[in-house]
Amino acid sequence: MIEIKGLVVRYKTVEFKFDDYKFKKNMISIISGRNGTGKTTLLKSLSSLIEYEGNIKVNGEITYNSQEPILFNRSTYENIVYPLRIRNLDLNLYKEKIDKYTRVLSIDHLLNENALKLSSGEKMKVSIIRSIIFNPDIVLLDEPTTHLDLESIVELTTLIKELKNELTFIIVSHNSSFVEELKDEEYRLGGNHVYS
């Protein structure tokens, strides 16, 4: 699904070298490692947001959800359907899905609210739903539990488990119970970065 070979990323003042790895389809892969080992850098490279050397072979559409959710100045609903609108997809066909995801993550009552006025946790939930609503093949989640309370983490775990057969997840998280609950495979980083 995603294969990395000889990947080197120079980001700001650090050079990261990543071991070769193959992320498999319909698996939940966890990228682990201590602070500063390049987890976010790797996710950004996989989604081509930053330049890199080496090979990244991606099979399918990929989307990256950052650890600080960036929402647009419009309603929660309009944020969620943004990827559908830009693909000219019929929103009616996604109504059921939107209802389901927003209900599972307990934000169904916020659909008409301006997304910029939501709490950090609610913003994260909107951002995650927006990342999965258009059925990408691979979803990269960077610290998705950062702003979430315990109940919300359970809700998110349920949703990801439900979607596991349809999507491939690659997740960076320091929340050990969340990771243990979801992990199919683990790609551990560490030691291969040099400060210039």
Binding site: E61, S66, I86
Partner: peptide
Amino acid sequence: KILETATTLGAN
């Protein structure tokens, strides 16, 4: 940040 987010959602 906005453009980066839009890119990851498939915007041209």
